[in-house]
Nucleic acid binder design. Structure first.
Lengths: 348, 348
DNA sequence: CACGCTGTTGTGAGCGCTAACAATCAACCT
DNA sequence: AGGTTGATTGTTAGCGCTCACAACAGCGTG
């Protein structure tokens, strides 16, 4: 209301220049923190900018610099705790480095969706993409797509020549398994995630290695799909085995490949009248916020999702700005969180 | 390798025009589906585009059209199931409408963070913002910020004159409470969310209304902070009351304002030796994926987060494209999911 | 046959910005 | 004193696109 002609059109650099009595180039210099500007001039310009409420037009800037300063993120299963937390870390890091980040969530994992996502982002001129695509087939598709900008994978493994960041899944699995063996269990059963997932593979591998190193023959692997329901089903099977006591390998300890499935396992055991950890110890992976309040509180492996997000942005920006060339792969350390579900009980 | 001078610079519209033997304007017309282009010409151009792998430069386009076709999203607590699912819905809807969407996750809820977020997005020329800011103070701050583009709130209430989309929280709370009364409980206790949250208020209001309508005096409200731990604490208090049997209001049914807190309540009750639902029935809100596998499976209110996301984008785009002017507020219907945690047991 | 119409294509300007270069001036050195 | 340097500012030319308009065909009509 103070301004008679409001809402006409945002002020341009030329407007600021006129207001400050300098050339538009000087305004540009002030905005880009160029050193060779007299302090007094800088002041004038800053004041004029403030007075007019000027904002640099990012489209014009992008046009001439050929830099959009925009990053893309492609993620599957964004409603889950892990990916969602990684996204937060990613996004914060990108913002700090002066990039805009745009996310594309993929529902399932068809290669077509991936291609469309890359296309969508490319049409907006992103300078790079972080792909949170933990399935082998996705990473494969990504590598073959050969995008016109750098792509960094999260949990994408290091077989293919894409740079990436992962939690050291195998180490995490080793930590849990060793913890269970140390607690006196003669063997450790495993409920794995779905086959195509790199995280499943690594966790299973870590578990298997520890057992084999200890001269223990790994029992048959049960497989779920990360959901509590699939864990429940696996749990029912385990409960049956635990009660039968006939099997070659007694069930006294289970390493479940994620916390959600562990929740299902716990329920199935409880329903089967089996006490945890008294009769069967259970451990998970991820440390979702609920894990501490499971019945009983769940021993699990914590992933520093925020760190993963931050480091993948770091890696991507290094590639974009030409500081990195190789397909480097960073590993983030996991942390074992010990809780009641694997606590050695009084019974022998 | 096939092309001697690759990677120099992406092809421009002029390149395509030359390749197709037309003017750049004709290329532009083909790209924008302008009707007045001869079919044969269109074909030529399309082929040339394909041959060169041409992509329209979005920055140049934005510069001249003054439309960035970019939307911003500001969200708090993006690692939680609800906000994360809403984001997915949002983002998908925006993409379908041809917008790029960029998300800013806020850690806590300081007004400063909000202002910075708006600023960050504004400096990229977003045409509108969806704010998933369920705290009253946030919405207040948003309204006062007076952004230079339309802002649509999600779960932001309808007191202030911002357009928005919400789940009908109050209805959801009424549904649960009525369900519990219908199951024969003489009263229903309530563990509410934090004070500043609009969702807490609405859920508490719905609960209170039903009780009062039934001539029941609502018991004292316990308050948590949405976390399982806070639910656990509230649950301990409730367990104490349930066992004491001295209080004016016996504890036989509890409506907890979200599923995570309900998990904590369940654990505390179990530890207090109280059977659910035998002695105390418990219901939650949200229907997170884990809820079905709680001990026992949790009766709760399902929110269609994806629909909320979709509708808020619809509303925002309506405002941007001038189809809506008023601060309309849309409500999405909740759905009661009945599970074992409130199942009437055999005991009287 | 001149006229106006419609459909199709081309031309020129300019969106708001940065990069490259030119111009100016004071300070400094020999 | 003359020339050289460096700091500060201005001028000009696009970045790749869309918009407004001009140009030109082909057609039917009075």
């Amino acid at each position: 209301m103070a301004h008679p002609a409001e809402d006409v059109r945002p002020p341009t650099m030329a407007d600021v220049a006129r207001e400050a009595g300098v050339s538009h180039q000087t305004v540009s210099r002030v905005l880009s923190d160029h050193p060779n500007v007299r302090a007094a001039t800088r002041e004038q310009v800053t004041l004029a900018i403030e007075r007019l409420g000027y904002r640099r037009n990012s489209a014009a800037r992008a046009l001439v610099t050929r830099r959009t300063r925009t990053l893309g993120v492609i993620a599957v299963n964004t409603a889950l705790y892990g990916p969602a937390s990684t996204l937060t870390g990613l996004e914060e890091a990108a913002r700090e480095q002066g990039y805009l980040v745009s996310t594309v969530s993929l529902r399932t994992g068809e290669g077509q969706g991936l291609k469309d996502a890359i296309d969508h982002l490319a049409s907006w001129g992103v300078e790079g993409v972080v792909a949170i695509t933990p399935q082998r087939s996705h990473v494969q598709a990504l590598a073959e797509l050969d995008a016109p900008f750098p792509v960094v994978t999260v949990e994408g493994g290091h077989q293919l020549d894409l740079p990436g960041v992962s939690l050291d899944q195998e180490l995490g699995a080793r930590m849990v398994t060793e913890h269970l063996l140390a607690a006196g269990h003669g063997n450790v059963w495993h409920v794995a995630g779905p086959d195509d997932w790199l995280e499943s593979e690594a966790r299973t591998a870590g578990w298997r290695t520890v057992l084999e190193e200890s001269g223990i023959r790994p029992p048959r692997v049960l497989t779920g799909d990360w959901s509590p329901l699939s864990g429940y089903r696996a749990g029912q099977e385990l409960a049956g085995l635990a009660l039968a006591r006939r099997g070659a390998t007694p069930v006294t300890a289970v390493f479940v490949a994620n916390d959600q499935m562990a929740l299902g396992v716990l329920r199935a055991l409880r329903e089967g009248g089996i006490r945890t950890p008294g009769q069967v110890a259970v451990a998970g992976f991820d440390d979702i916020p609920e894990a501490e309040f499971f019945p009983p509180p769940l021993t699990t492996v914590r992933q520093d999702f925020a760190a993963i997000g931050r480091r993948s942005i770091g890696l991507l920006v290094d590639h974009i700005e030409g500081r990195a060339r190789k397909a480097e792969h960073l590993l983030v350390e996991p942390q074992l969180i010990m809780r009641a579900s694997t606590r050695p009980s009084n019974e022998s």
